[in-house]
Design a binder for these strands. Structure first.
Lengths: 174, 174
DNA sequence: TGGAGATACATGCAAACGCATATATCTTAG
DNA sequence: CTAAGATATATGCGTTTGCATGTATCTCCA
């Protein structure tokens, strides 16, 4: 038993290491023109959300404190990349959506970035391996983990990562 | 072909998501007493290096810019947790090592943190799964990937992650 | 040998972050 | 219906980050 604890820690450390190595690699590329990786992360997350998203929803995906995200979105809004509207249903909340310019920029950067990601991943892993990686990481992230790889029933709870399930090809398609 | 690109991107996104979710979870725990997670990361990395390490070596493991790491180490040195000595062999470089206090603090925090990590990982994954995760992530990180799980030949190039291969149990042992 | 370029780390400075807290709205027990 | 508490987001403020650059040392080739 005491061994499995150790192995579990090694696995997490390996994940951290892979994350750091690849993040640095991606950051060093010329992909990021006029947006930082964090800003892109927000734009990308917004692009995956069907309708307007809320700050708190965004904040579940982005590794940033709530105030930091609030200001980051503020900056993106000032640059005309996202639109921030008061929510009619909930006066405290905000509805966020990409503007046309924001969507364009996300797609453009997303295309380049997706290429880098695909290159890095496929260079080291076999298809079977990165499929396993996806499955395992989804579980780790606490997602229901859709085991079937084709048209899963789409259970539909708005858990951590809800995605429209279509349309997200746009940014990944070459 | 165009499909595998997409799947590879999904795998990376899943990894990012798992990273973000677990990092937030760990950050929210009471584990971090007097050190931030980044500071702990540096202390931990130092604890794994056999002898004194160099800044640039550290910087390979930690996701921070070189100036940020330089100052972070400076702060740790001021607090008496790490020792910074000029390198006799290379006048430009610095040799970093944990002080006794630094090692103690690392172990104490490491014990708590390792528990959290083990809890989180084993709660979601089977032993076979986190072993696979480790193997796959090591490859992703560009490590030689020791396929044998017992006493690998220890090729020994000082690639990204060189670890003493022993002693690191100390911080993970319950 | 000498000097151009590379490497290792540090520092000035503006931008961005996290923590604590403020503000506004929603929810709910009484 | 109201007051207490929860929730969603924003803002003040000190700290930390990244970028550009500085300084010192090392490397290597002419």
């Amino acid at each position: 038993m005491t061994g499995s604890r150790h192995v579990a820690n090694d696995a997490w450390e390996a994940l951290l290491s892979a994350h750091a190595v690849l993040m640095k690699q991606f950051a060093a590329e010329e992909t990021w023109d006029s947006v930082s990786m964090r800003e892109y992360d927000v734009l990308y997350t917004l692009s995956k959300c069907a309708g307007p998203a809320r700050m708190s929803e965004l904040n579940r995906h982005v590794l940033l404190s709530q105030p930091a995200l609030s200001r980051l979105v503020g900056r993106l809004a000032e640059r005309g990349l996202v639109e921030r509207q008061p929510d009619s249903a909930d006066g405290r909340g905000v509805r966020l959506a990409l503007t046309a310019a924001g969507r364009d920029l996300q797609r453009q950067v997303g295309r380049r970035h997706a290429r880098s990601v695909a290159r890095a991943v496929t260079a080291e892993l076999t298809p079977a391996q990165y499929r396993q990686l996806e499955e395992i990481c989804r579980r780790l992230a606490g997602e229901p983990a859709p085991p079937a790889r084709q048209a899963a029933p789409a259970v539909g709870h708005l858990q951590p990562h809800q995605r429209p399930a279509d349309q997200q090809d746009k940014d990944l398609a070459s």
